[in-house]
Amino acid sequence: MTGGNQGIGKSVARTLAEAGSDIVIIDLAESTQTAAQIAEDFGVRAAAYVCDVTQPEQVAEVMNAAAQKMGTLDHLFNNAGIVLHKPALELSPQEWLKVINVNLNGVFFVAQAFARYLVATGKPGNIVNTASMSGTIVNIPQAQASYNASKAAVVHLTKSLGVEWAQHGIRVNSISPGYIATELIGDVREDWKRQWIEAIPFQRMGTPEELGGAVLYLLSDAATYTSGCDLIIDGLFTTV
């Protein structure tokens, strides 16, 4: 999985490990301690690799190294992402490209490298990409056009890859979390947070732990006829 050192990725890694899965964390941050703690807590094998997902050569190298170390790769939780709250009129080209590179290009490069491994070894597999409810609606009051656009693209990329790779026995789905209380929103203005919560019918933000079951389902044999699906998990935010 990518982006597994903290937040949603770390929580989902623990959910998958609790279900008996060995874990490989691929993150820009050093994640050896996170992997070691997962291995200790759940009695599974866990490894960690530092990688910039926007660099396809690095991604391919890490994918090969992980496959050799673990013996096989079966599932991918493609989760690395960043957000930038900045009005579109003020965005520099570099800022726009940074968000798109991580959130869209990085998702594609990792999915591509994983699928190439599966096809080369002649085995089926499953991918779950992390999109966002921001790919379906436009968030307010914060301005985040770059993030919204990148996540909308992830949803359609998921559908496109699902269709292309069905012939190879590779299922591709995505989850679209709503407002989730993670480190990613730690520096967000408190008045924004209050406005979000007031607009959520559940009257609270979600927790990373509330996403793990959805990922587990989509990666499992319980979802063998499900591909190209985007599962919105947002406490009803996009429903009203």
Rank of each mutant, 00 (worst) to 15 (best):
T158G: 00
S134W: 00
A131Q: 04
I170A: 12
Y147N: 06
E190S: 03
V128Q: 00
I180Q: 09
V128Y: 02
K193A: 13
A145S: 15
Q142Y: 03
P177I: 11
Q203I: 15
A149C: 11
P177R: 04
W192G: 03
R171S: 10
L184G: 02
N129V: 04
V188C: 13
A153T: 11
D191V: 10
K151C: 15
V163D: 12
W196F: 15
S174Y: 10
E198M: 03
A181H: 11
Y179V: 10
I137N: 07
D187E: 15
S160F: 03
S174V: 09
R171K: 14
K151Q: 12
Y179T: 02
A143D: 13
R171N: 02
I175T: 00
N148D: 14
I175E: 10
L161T: 01
A149Y: 01
D191T: 12
E190H: 04
E183K: 13
T130E: 00
Q142N: 08
G162A: 14
N129I: 09
A199E: 14
V154I: 12
G178E: 10
I127E: 07
H168M: 03
P141G: 00
D187P: 05
N139H: 06
R116D: 14
L157C: 08
A145Q: 08
P124D: 13
L157R: 01
W165E: 09
W192V: 12
R189N: 14
L184R: 10
H168V: 02
E164S: 11
L157Y: 05
G169W: 07
T182H: 03
P141W: 03
Q167E: 13
V163Y: 05
A131M: 02
S160Q: 11
A199M: 12
E190G: 00
P177Q: 08
L118A: 05
R116P: 05
H156I: 15
E190F: 00
I137M: 14
A166H: 04
A120K: 04
N139E: 13
Q142P: 02
A152K: 06
V128G: 00
